[in-house]
Amino acid sequence: MDVKLTINGEEKSASVPPETTLLRLLREEFNLTGAKIGCDVGDCGACTVIVDGIATNSCLMLAGQVQGRSIETIEGLANMDDYHPLQKNFEDLGSLQCGFCGPGIILSAKQLLDDNPDPNKEEIQDALAGNLCRCTGYTKIVEAVADAAREMRGNREAA
């Protein structure tokens, strides 16, 4: 089947078998390997990408379901001038260890901050509840999300 969609702001198309998941479409057709295969059945969140503004497990979506929709992946988060505040704060705090869960977690956090610029700790933990991380205990991840939120609010006020 033919799929047309927008990935990180650019229009793309591909021709794939109908059983292809969005995760495989991204990884295999577009070489965007930031979304990871942790379980392939919707349990771990390693494959999280943002579909029309909603953080979604891409292993649970079929290519056909993303026809005409807009996808944000980890690869599109920074630009040539600057990192996304989440990326910077994750790096500064050493929030990620093996990093395998990282792209998914950062995108779940991005959706949270897009919707709620001033989340409290519980709200951050809630937003990340679907993203498993075995290494970090989530502690420095939650801290970095809070720091990034603060930074983004500061930037907005300054602007």
Binding site: D43, Q125, L128, L132, C133
Partner: peptide, 13 residues
């Protein structure tokens, strides 16, 4: 599988 093998999430910490 990770549906029935329960490991800590951010909410358990």
């Amino acid at each position: 599988n990770l549906t029935n093998y329960i490991m800590p999430t951010s909410l358990d910490m």
